[in-house]
Design a protein around this nucleic acid. Structure first.
Lengths: 209, 209
DNA sequence: CACGACTTACTGACAGGTATGTAAGTTAAA
DNA sequence: TTTAACTTACATACCTGTCAGTAAGTCGTG
């Protein structure tokens, strides 16, 4: 049983190169979509041929998956303490994120385009986004529960709707903002809507309709 | 100047045929996106070749525009009185629409996919969606103003944010619902969020954050 | 109201562009 | 000296739009 697992050791500059490619791909997928964003264009941006990219990632499909997971990693890395905030802090974090997003249209566009494109038939990113939203809804719901517990109120049945809604406004505002940045204020509008929804959960009132 | 303007008279069945094509195109663009949805597939669905479709619409681009304007027409036609509801009625109408949308995933998907795809570079539907959101925000804002006037309160500065937010939640929830219909209740969640936002405009409270 | 002239609604074939993935060869780092 | 990191060349597959042709409908006119 002399099976030597020879794992592919890469050259020194390789991880950096792959990262360059992933970043370029994010940009191209963001500006043209996955299906319409050609490998040649990504390749050109990092100064190689499209075959070079396929050497690194094997397929376009795989590259897309790495683009998505890369963004997750860098998101997590960005959090100082490395832990997801909870309770009130989570909502404050979401508002800050919305303001920060107004400064980086590139990634925002990539996510907006890809998440909507992912609902199409057999899209390679479909299960990624399905899982991502599922998890995020869970995290927001948990933050709601924590807040309710802190205030000694019973967690209402509206939490599930509110959690989905908070993610939904953030995404929906991004699309409107990308289409017309002069007419939509991403950070301010997100903050307003998040506060409105949180208030409606913690301290429900009669419907104004 | 004996220029006889011979206007193109079409055969009797033609308008119906064009409508069939538009409907098929809506379905294909919805399930695969504009760029990735081939004319051949649309053609196949109505029993023609792709050249036949180009005969009717001239180009794929043009077909897309007709798909979009067709949906607008049928939306307007749907309203009994032919007038856009206003004030409180508009919000009630939006909630009803959200519930109705849960019954027609096809069109919902087409709009979700196309609106996000439209933010990509030089997309043929970009100005359509830009204009559409602009108009809808205006209508919602007007409804807010009417409601404020009715209650004798001054229209607050939050109206612009709230208007964009209401459209945003509706769209964002659609995407989540399309990805995971078992976990997101489109109608109920939309109703909850719309009520929360309307309440926050009409009767603002201190931020819970 | 019948008939010829013209037009519409297509089809089939193809041109031209573009895309992904593969295979074989080259260079240089480890 | 082995093998990672490429390139060039190519196979293969699409997809849109054009063109020429055909069958059937519609209109003007006698």
């Amino acid at each position: 049983m002399a099976t030597k697992k020879r794992e592919p050791r890469s050259r020194s500059g390789t991880p950096a190169r792959r990262q360059e490619i992933v970043r370029a791909a994010t940009e191209i997928f963001g500006s043209k979509g996955y299906k319409a964003g050609p490998l040649t264009e990504i390749a050109e941006q990092v100064g190689m041929t499209h075959a070079g990219i396929l050497h690194h990632f094997g397929s376009k499909h795989q590259l897309l998956l790495e683009v998505l997971s890369y963004r997750d990693e860098s998101d997590v890395a960005e959090l100082d303490g490395k832990h997801i905030p909870d309770g009130t802090d989570l909502f404050r974090h979401l508002v800050r994120t919305a303001f920060a997003n107004a400064q980086r249209a590139g990634i925002v566009q990539a996510y907006a385009v890809l998440s909507a494109e992912s609902v199409t038939d057999n899209h390679p990113a479909r299960s990624y986004f399905e899982g991502r939203y599922h998890q995020l809804r869970g995290e927001v719901a948990h933050a709601f529960e924590v807040m309710c517990a802190e205030r000694g109120v019973a967690a209402p049945a509206t939490i599930a709707h509110a959690s989905a809604s908070i993610l939904a406004v953030m995404d929906g505002l991004q699309v409107q903002w990308l289409l017309d940045p002069g007419d939509v204020q991403l950070g301010e509008a997100s903050a307003f809507a998040i506060e409105a929804i949180v208030a409606a959960v913690l301290d429900p009132r009669e419907s104004p309709l």
